[in-house]
Design a protein around this nucleic acid. Structure first.
Lengths: 210, 210
DNA sequence: CTTCAACCTGACCATACGGTCAGGAAAAGA
DNA sequence: TCTTTTCCTGACCGTATGGTCAGGTTGAAG
C-alpha cells in the first residue's frame, strides 16, 4: 500500500494542495471543533477558494476524517518504540518519550483526536473497535509478560496504558492551560525536557521498574 | 454570597427551570461541543420551548459560561480534600479519590471543561489566570513542603499536578474510548474501584510516598 | 378584586453555513 | 496541433441557526 504516484506536475499540485488543506483543517478543527469549524475558514487559512476544498474533499466530514486518521497513524508508529525493548524501563520510557514528542510537534492533531473521542467517536468508532483494540490487547499482554518475569510491579496493564495516554496527551490537549499557568509562555526546551523526565520518573518508579 | 432567595412559588419555578436547562445544556455541549450544540436541541432535551431558554439565558454563550463555571466550582471543592491532610499519602490519595469520583459522576461537565481549554479557553481565560493560577501555586507550595520534610521524593510539583489532572479526568473525557476497549460496556463498580486503586498506587509509589 | 411584574411562547428575521454547478483554464496525451 | 482529462472558481441555493418580539398567561402584593 501507499505507493507513490509518478511525480508529474499534476500530481505535484494535488499533493501540495492536499497538504495545504490538511494543515489548515487540522488547525481549524483543533481550535473550533468539528461543529465550530467552517469550510470558509479552512479555505482562507489554506489560501484557496472554498469551492476548491470541495474539489479535493467532497464533504466537511471526509476532510475531518482524514485529519483524524493522520494523527492516529502517527501514534501507531510511535508505539513501535515499545515493542523491541528488552524491558519496561526501556520500552515504556521510549514510549513516553515518543508520545511527549508528538504532543509537542502535533498538538493540533492530538486535540482533534481528543475532541472526536469526547464526542463519542462518531466518525472513527470502527478504528477504536479494530485497530486500537488489537493494539491495546497486544501491549497489555507485553506488559503482563514483564510483570510475570518480575521486571515490574503487578499493576493492571490497561490502567497503566490509560495513564500513559492521559499524561502524555495532556501536554498537547491542555497545552493552553499549562501555558497560562507557566506565566503565559509556552514551555521552553528545558521545560519540555523536565516534563518528560518528571513523567518518566514518576511512572517508572510507580510501576516498580526503577 | 449565594444567599438563597425566599422559597416562593415563583423562585421555585425559576430554580427548577434553570436546573433543567443547565442539565440539558451540559449534556449537549459535552456531546457536540460549543459550535455543534444548538439551542433547539438543548430546549428539546430540557422539554422547554427554545424562546424560554433565551428568557433565562440571553445568549448561547451565557448559558455555556454557566455550565463551565459549575464544573470548575465542583473541582475546587474537591481540592479541599488535599488541604487538611497530614501528608502526601492521605492528601494526594484523597484528591485522586475525589477527582475520580467527579469523573464518574460528572463526565459531561469534565468534557465541557476540556473542550473549552482545548479551544484556547475563549470564555474562561480569566479563571485560568486568577482562581486556577492561585490554587495551583498554593498546592505546589504544599507539595514542596512535603518534599522538604522528606515525606516524598523530590518531583516537580507542577508536573505532578498536571499528572493528577490528566489521569483522573481521562476517565471522564476519554470515557467512550475506555468503554469501547472494555468490550463496549461501561466500567462496573468493581472496575472503577480498580481504576482508582491503580492510579493511586502508581502515583503514590511514583512519588516515593509509599 | 385590581394591579403589576415575572413568566412564557409561536411566529418571525437576518445571517451564515455546507454544498452545488456551469463554465473556464491548464496540463497531459496523442 | 487537437483532444481529453484534470483542475479551478464565482455565483448561487436550500437549510438551519441564534436571537427577537409582540402579546398572552400566571403568580404575587396590596
Amino acid at each position: 500500500m501507499n505507493e507513490q504516484p509518478r511525480p508529474t506536475r499534476r500530481n505535484e499540485i494535488r499533493a501540495q494542495n492536499e497538504t495545504l488543506i490538511l494543515r489548515a483543517a487540522e488547525k481549524v478543527f483543533a481550535e473550533a471543533g468539528f461543529g465550530g469549524a467552517t469550510m470558509q475558514l479552512i479555505a482562507d487559512m489554506a489560501g484557496l477558494p472554498k469551492a476548491n476544498l470541495h474539489y479535493y474533499f467532497p464533504t466537511k466530514e471526509s476532510l475531518y476524517r482524514r485529519v483524524v486518521q493522520d494523527i492516529f497513524e502517527i501514534w501507531l508508529q510511535a508505539a513501535a518504540a515499545m515493542d523491541d525493548a528488552p524491558g519496561p524501563v526501556e520500552g515504556i520510557g521510549a514510549y513516553i518519550d515518543a508520545k511527549m514528542e508528538i504532543s509537542r510537534r502535533h498538538p493540533d492533531g492530538s486535540k482533534v483526536w481528543a475532541s472526536e473521542v469526547m464526542h463519542g467517536a462518531p466518525v472513527i468508532q470502527d478504528y477504536l473497535e479494530t485497530t486500537l483494540r488489537d493494539w491495546t490487547r497486544g501491549r497489555a499482554a507485553l506488559i503482563q509478560r514483564w510483570i510475570d518475569e518480575g521486571r515490574m510491579a503487578p499493576v493492571d496493564p490497561n490502567h497503566l496504558l490509560y495513564m500513559l495516554w492521559a499524561t502524555t496527551q495532556h501536554y498537547a490537549d491542555f497545552g493552553h492551560q499549562i501555558e497560562t499557568l507557566n506565566g503565559g509562555r509556552a514551555l521552553s526546551d528545558r521545560q519540555w525536557q523536565a516534563a518528560k523526565e518528571s513523567v518518566k520518573q514518576i511512572i517508572l518508579r510507580g510501576i516498580g521498574a526503577l
